[in-house]
Design a protein around this nucleic acid. Structure first.
Length: 305
DNA sequence: CATACGTCCTGCCAGC
DNA sequence: TGCTGGCAGGACGTAT
C-alpha cells in the first residue's frame, strides 16, 4: 500500500541513528479519531450560534447546499458527540449535523485570529456568531460527507448502524450471534458499519491480532473462545486508541490540529515484513475485499479451508 | 437476502 | 532530473 513501500519503519534506524519516522500512509478516521474530534469541539462549540454557512465543495454534501444551509443557519449548537466513525453536532431544534470524515477529512475549530496555517482544502465552513470563530471541514480527497438531519431522519440514520462497540450493551454474546450468521471474512465483517459501528481497517487488524484470529477466517468459523477474545480485544484496542487521541499516519488531526499518538503502538497494521513483537515471525500483508490486511502467520494461524 | 465489486479523489513515490 | 502511472481506501451504488 502507499507509503508502506520503500522507506518504512522496518528499516529501524536511519543512518544518523535516529529512529525513522513512522510509516507514512493514509489515516482512516475511525471511532477513536471521531471521539477525539468530538471531545475537542465540545467546549468551543456548545451554545454557539451558527451565523453563516459557506459550502465551497458541494460534492461533500448529500443534499442541495441551499437546504443544508437552511437547516443550519441561525441554529444554536448543543452537545458534540459521535456515532460510529461520525462526528455528530446537535442543534437546538433537535436536528443534527453528521460529519463522516471519509479518508482524509478533518473537522477543525479555528478561533478568530488563529495564527496557525490555514487549512489547505477547506470544503465547508460554519462561521459562529459574535466572532466566536469558525468550524472548518477540510478534506484533501473529499471522500467525507456532511448531512444535516432532522430528528426523525437522524434516528433512522442511526438505526442503520450497528451497535457501539464501547457501549456496555455490546456483549460477547451479541458479537457471537452476529458472526455466526455471516460467511464473510471476519475482517470484512468488522468493517461493515451495519454490524458494528466505528471499526475501520486499522483497528480491525489490530483487534484480530490481539485476539489471535487470522483476518481471512470466515466470521461463522471463529471458535467461541476466540469470539470472547475478539470482543475483549475490540474494546481494549479502541479504548487505548481513544486514550492516545487516535492514530495519525498522515492526514488525521484532532480538532486542534494535533496528531494522535497511537501509531507507535500498532502491532501489525502497516508492518509488513517486520518481526511480530510477540513471536518474531514476519508480519504478512494480504489483500482481499479490495484492501490490505496484516497479520502474524504464527500468532494468527491460517483457518482450515 | 447476502455478499462481492467498481467508483469516487488526489498525493505520493517507484521507475523510467 | 523531471515526468507519469499506479496505488490506497470508506461508503455507497450496482451486480451476482
Amino acid at each position: 500500500m502507499e507509503g508502506l513501500r520503500g522507506r518504512g519503519r522496518g528499516s529501524g534506524l536511519s543512518p544518523a541513528g535516529d529512529p525513522v519516522a513512522a510509516t507514512v500512509t493514509h489515516a482512516m478516521p475511525e471511532l477513536p479519531e471521531a471521539e477525539t474530534i468530538a471531545r475537542g469541539l465540545r467546549n468551543p462549540l456548545t451554545r454557539r450560534r451558527i451565523a453563516r454557512v459557506r459550502v465551497l465543495r458541494p460534492d461533500l454534501l448529500l443534499e442541495a447546499p441551499s437546504a443544508f444551509e437552511a437547516r443550519l443557519v441561525g441554529r444554536r449548537l448543543g452537545d458534540v458527540g459521535r456515532r460510529g466513525k461520525n462526528v455528530v453536532l446537535e442543534l437546538d431544534d433537535g436536528s443534527r449535523l453528521v460529519v463522516n470524515l471519509g479518508m482524509s477529512g478533518r473537522l477543525l475549530y479555528r478561533s478568530r485570529g488563529d495564527a496557525s496555517p490555514a487549512p489547505t482544502h477547506p470544503g465547508v465552513l460554519l462561521d459562529l456568531d459574535e466572532g466566536a470563530g469558525t468550524v472548518v471541514y477540510d478534506d484533501v480527497r473529499r471522500f467525507g460527507r456532511l448531512r444535516a438531519l432532522d430528528a426523525d431522519a437522524y434516528r433512522e440514520w442511526s438505526r442503520s448502524l450497528g451497535p457501539e462497540p464501547l457501549s456496555p450493551t455490546f456483549t460477547a454474546r451479541e458479537l457471537a450471534s452476529g458472526l455466526a450468521r455471516s460467511s464473510s471474512p471476519v475482517r470484512a465483517w468488522l468493517l461493515d458499519q451495519r454490524r458494528v459501528a466505528g471499526i475501520g481497517n486499522i483497528y480491525a487488524n489490530e483487534a484480530l491480532f490481539a485476539a489471535r484470529i487470522d483476518p481471512r477466517t470466515r466470521a461463522s468459523a471463529v471458535p467461541t473462545p476466540r469470539v470472547r477474545s475478539l470482543h475483549r480485544a475490540i474494546r481494549s484496542v479502541l479504548r487505548a486508541a481513544v486514550a492516545a487521541r487516535g492514530t495519525t499516519l498522515r492526514d488525521y488531526r484532532t480538532s486542534e490540529g494535533v496528531e494522535g499518538s497511537y501509531a507507535p503502538r500498532l502491532r501489525v497494521y502497516g508492518r509488513e515484513g517486520e518481526a511480530c513483537d510477540r513471536c518474531r515471525a514476519l508480519v504478512v500483508r494480504t489483500v482481499f475485499g479490495g484492501r490490505s490486511a496484516f497479520h502474524c502467520p504464527r500468532c494468527q494461524p491460517e483457518p482450515l479451508p
